[in-house]
Write a protein that binds this DNA or RNA. Structure first.
Lengths: 245, 245
DNA sequence: CGGGTAATTGACCCGGGTCAACAGCAGTGG
DNA sequence: CCACTGCTGTTGACCCGGGTCAATTACCCG
C-alpha cells in the first residue's frame, strides 16, 4: 500500500512505530498531477519533498535549443532529495509522465520524522546514496554503452526497482513511458530506440507493447547490458535484522 | 590552506569554532597517494571519508570489457559521500590522477563534527546536494551535447570549481588530466578529444599545454557549452551572512 | 641517451542521427 | 456512428559525427 515503506524495508527492518510514522507522514498531504504536467520547475524555490505513491515521473534538464535529457525516473516509493530546502532554486525539472499521486512533505515534517526515528533516518540516507549511485550509473550508461546495451540496462534497472516495491507481476510490469522518453533518458533518438527495441524483441529478450513490459530472458538481457546490480545496494545485511526483536 | 573550509564558506559563513573544528578534523590523519593509484576499489567495504587536500582524483566505473567512464573529478576541497559507511560495498572506484594528499575521516569523527556543529552539517549537506547536481549535469552533458560542447562544458565547470577553492590564478589554473582522462569523462575517444581541443584552441577559446589551462574567452566558451552554472549553487544567500554576528 | 607515456595526425568506417512518409489507435466533438 | 485530430510507433533512404587503426612526434624522467 505504501511503497516508501516497502522500499525502506528492503534496506532495514522497521519497528511498528517507524512504520506508522511513515504512514502518517505520507498520508497527510497527497496531491495528484495530470500526465505530462510539470511537478516542479528549474529556477523555482524548492517547496516540498515529494514521495511518489502512484505513477511514473522523471527529472529532466533541457538545453536552450530544446534538447532534453531525462536524468532519472521516479516510480512509486521514490522521493526527491531530502534536504532540497537548503538550496535556493531548482536546477532541474520534475515532470509527471503518467498521472501521478504523490505525498508532499514540508520541511518540518521531514525534520520531525528524522529526529524521532533514527532507523528511518538511516534508511532515508541509504535511499539517498542509492539515488546518487543510480545517477552515476546513468552517466556510465550514456557515456560508454551502445544503444542496444543502454536500453537493455534501463530495462533491467527499472524492472528491479519496481520489483523492490512490489510492482512487478512475475516477469512483467507496467512500463508507461514512450519511445521518446526512452530516447531522452538514454541519449538516443526515438527512431533509433524503435529500431533497437525491435532488435531486442527479435532476440527474444523482452516484449513491450501497450505500456506493458515482459522480460522473456532476464539472464540474456543482463548479459547484453553488462548489468551489475551492485549499485542498487539491495544486499544490505540490515534487511535481515528485525528491529522489533 | 584548507580547501574544504574555503569551499564550505562559499555556502555559509562559519564561526571560529566551526573553522577550527574543520581544521582539526582535516589535520588529524593525512594520507598521500601516488599518481594513478587507486584510493578505493569497487567491491570493498567503505572505510573512510576522504577530504581532498591536494591533487586531482576521480571516481570511475568500468565495464567487464574494459570500457571506462570517469563519473566525477575530485579536486581540493571535495569529499566523497558523507554517509558512505551505511553501504556494504563500493559500487565504483576512486583513483588518484596526480599525486594526492587527502585527509581520512573515520565514521566517528564525521559523527562528532556534525553533532557539535550544525552549521558545518548544513554546509556539508549543501555540498552533497551540489555533488549530485553535478552528477546530473554530467549525464546531460554526455547524453546530449556534441564533443565540442562537452569539452567546453567540462572546462567551464572545472574552472569554476577550482576558483571557489582559490586554485585559479587570473584566467588560468592547473589542469593535470590527460586527453585520455578527458575522453573517459566525456564519453569520447582520446583521438577525438585531441581533434576537438585543437578546434577550441583554433577558435581562441582556451589554451591548454603542459598541464596548464588558460581561458582566453570565457564568455565564448560558456556560450559554446551552453553552460549554466546554476547547478553549482554558488548563489546561496547564506554566503553573505556572518555567523559571528 | 633510452624508454615509456601522452599528443598529434591521416585514412577510412560505422553506429546512430536526420528527414520523411505512413500506420495504428485513442479521444472528441458533431 | 463517423470524421477529424494528435500522439505514438514503424520503416526506409541517406548522411555525418565521432570511432578505429596506425604511424609519428613530442615530452618527461631517470
Amino acid at each position: 500500500m505504501n511503497p516508501l515503506k516497502t522500499k525502506l524495508e528492503a534496506f532495514t527492518r522497521l519497528s511498528e512505530a517507524d512504520r506508522s510514522a511513515i504512514d502518517r507522514a505520507v498520508g497527510r498531504n497527497v496531491r495528484t498531477f495530470a500526465a505530462r504536467r510539470d511537478m516542479a520547475r528549474e529556477g523555482e524555490r524548492p517547496r516540498a519533498v515529494y514521495v511518489m505513491l502512484e505513477g511514473w515521473a522523471c527529472r529532466y534538464k533541457t538545453l536552450p535549443d530544446g534538447r532534453r535529457q531525462i536524468v532519472a525516473f521516479f516510480v512509486p516509493g521514490d522521493l526527491c532529495d531530502l534536504n532540497i530546502f537548503i538550496l535556493k532554486e531548482m536546477d532541474h525539472n520534475v515532470g509527471a509522465i503518467t498521472a501521478v499521486r504523490a505525498a508532499e512533505l514540508g520541511r518540518h515534517e521531514v525534520e520531525r520524522m528524522t529526529e524521532e526515528h533514527p532507523r528511518i533516518t538511516r534508511a532515508l540516507w541509504w535511499n539517498e546514496l542509492v539515488t546518487v549511485a543510480v545517477q552515476r550509473d546513468w552517466t556510465l550508461n550514456v557515456g560508454q554503452r551502445s544503444a542496444y546495451e543502454r536500453i537493455s540496462h534501463l530495462v533491467c534497472e527499472m524492472f528491479l526497482r519496481l520489483r523492490t516495491v512490489g510492482l512487478t507481476q512475475g516477469d512483467s510490469c507496467d512500463f508507461p513511458i514512450t519511445q521518446t522518453d526512452i530516447g531522452d533518458a538514454t541519449g538516443l533518438t526515438s527512431v533509433h530506440v524503435n529500431r533497437t527495441l525491435k532488435e531486442l524483441r527479435g532476440d527474444g529478450l523482452i516484449e513491450l507493447k501497450g505500456r506493458r513490459l515482459t522480460i522473456l530472458d532476464f539472464a540474456g538481457l543482463r548479459r547484453a547490458a553488462m548489468f551489475n546490480d551492485n549499485y542498487l545496494h539491495l544486499d544490505h545485511e540490515g534487511r535481515h535484522l528485525d528491529a522489533n526483536g
